[in-house]
Design a protein around this nucleic acid. Structure first.
Lengths: 114, 114
DNA sequence: TCATTATATAACTATATGCTTATATAATCA
DNA sequence: TGATTATATAAGCATATAGTTATATAATGA
């Protein structure tokens, strides 16, 4: 069961976070598929600190979770966040990012473990 | 018929706009009921220029419409905006602002024309 | 253990944002 | 017409934000 998020501050805080193109796209990507930082650096064509700082904000808000696999840290959307119902509705409006993941595969830059 | 808003920039731009507590609350209010600037000044307990500037941003994005009645200019949510489907989903998560309108009535500060 | 790779964090900078004060425009009313 | 009321806009300021560079931490592998 997901309980409704009915608090003005939390809604506006969440919208402010996702009012950034990079973070909004990240959520769309990480909803479908967990990614490590270096994959996101490749996808967003930006610096590693920039990616880490965006992820930090999403994590602080509880929107993503992380787990380490060896040297990599993988991030994905936290399905148990209080804001998840809102998040799901939002990212439905964001264009699919599947092509980004396919690009990664093509370039052989996809990280996979186990 | 409402057509889906499927553009990353427009979605993130809309979320950034509504990632402000004042503007988010305004949209919730103006969805239910048109208000003039002076009513919003009373409700938000802030300055008139501040309210006007927020409304300006919402209007520039096409999210609200205005019409003058005598000396007052009334604003309301524009149901024909390209983002309306997204807006409706968003403001469903915002707590009702009915009490604000009731407060106005009680204080005799509600503007009505015709 | 040392070098390499992945990630996080800190400090700095440039730009964006929201509010304030002051002023301009527009409508109403005496 | 002049005073009042409602609203918009401009300029200035303080804070927030996102990116950069430099550095720290952590895991891997030779």
């Amino acid at each position: 069961m997901s309980f409704a998020l009915d608090d003005l501050d939390e809604v506006s805080q969440t919208l402010k976070l996702l009012g950034d193109k990079t973070r909004l796209t990240m959520m769309k990507l990480l909803e479908k598929q967990e990614c490590c930082v270096c994959e996101l650096v490749e996808i967003f064509k930006t610096s590693q600190p920039s990616v880490s700082q965006h992820l930090r904000k999403l994590k602080d808000a509880g929107l993503v979770k992380e787990h380490r696999k060896g040297q990599w840290i993988f991030y994905s959307v936290n399905p148990n966040s209080m804001q998840n119902e809102l998040i799901q509705k939002l990212i439905a409006f964001v264009p699919s990012q599947d092509h980004e993941l396919e690009e990664l595969d093509k370039k052989g830059l996809r990280i996979s473990c186990d």
